[in-house]
Write a protein that binds this DNA or RNA. Structure first.
Lengths: 93, 93
DNA sequence: TCTGTATTTCGTCAAATGCAGAAATAAACA
DNA sequence: TGTTTATTTCTGCATTTGACGAAATACAGA
């Protein structure tokens, strides 16, 4: 959970999620959308992947990233309930 | 929105929100719950306040903090829809 | 106004973060 | 195996962050 929030705290990473919401994209396609070095984007992918927010899959020479939508929803819903109910946030829906 | 995510990315700040979920507390009461200097906690309060997640109110000699629950819910719900639908996240519920 | 209590602001420091370019790795294919 | 393409890992640097203690501010009451 900690990692998820840290991942979401960066605007570039949230924009990556937004792009992946529309369709799966390769690392290179994503990198083209930002005025940043590919190595920098690769680092952002890594953070998002460790947080479970995206998944990667190798397809021929490229690596395709896709949004792990259910993980995103679960996480945010979990936080919502954590802030609404009276428990300690260990158990979810 | 950016500020909200940055505010939520720190574990101490999320714990502050959890404590305030139970009841309003003064800055001193909150500070007692953490092994940190009061000045450090004051900084966290400031971040949470600027993000709109908590509100403060002076009561006699103390400053009472309370959770801005509706803001929290709105924010997280907004993010949820931003990740689910195909728009740009400017319009919400 | 002076004192005591509660909280924030300031100055400083160590650690973490985001970035770039260079080198390394992985896969497809001649 | 050697080459090309796609991506990641490594190294170094500048900025930001979270932490502390000391000083400053705000308010209530003698």
């Amino acid at each position: 959970m900690n990692e998820v929030f840290r991942a979401l705290s960066d605007p570039t990473r949230r924009e990556i999620l937004r792009l992946l919401r529309a369709r799966d994209m390769t690392a290179g396609e994503l990198a083209e959308r930002f005025p940043l070095a590919k190595s920098t984007l690769s680092g952002h992918f890594s953070v998002l992947r460790h947080a479970g927010l995206i998944v990667q899959e190798r397809r021929r020479t490229s690596i395709v990233y896709s949004l792990n939508l259910s993980a995103v929803e679960e996480t945010i819903a979990g936080v919502l309930s954590l802030l609404k109910t009276g428990r300690d946030g260990k158990e979810g829906s």
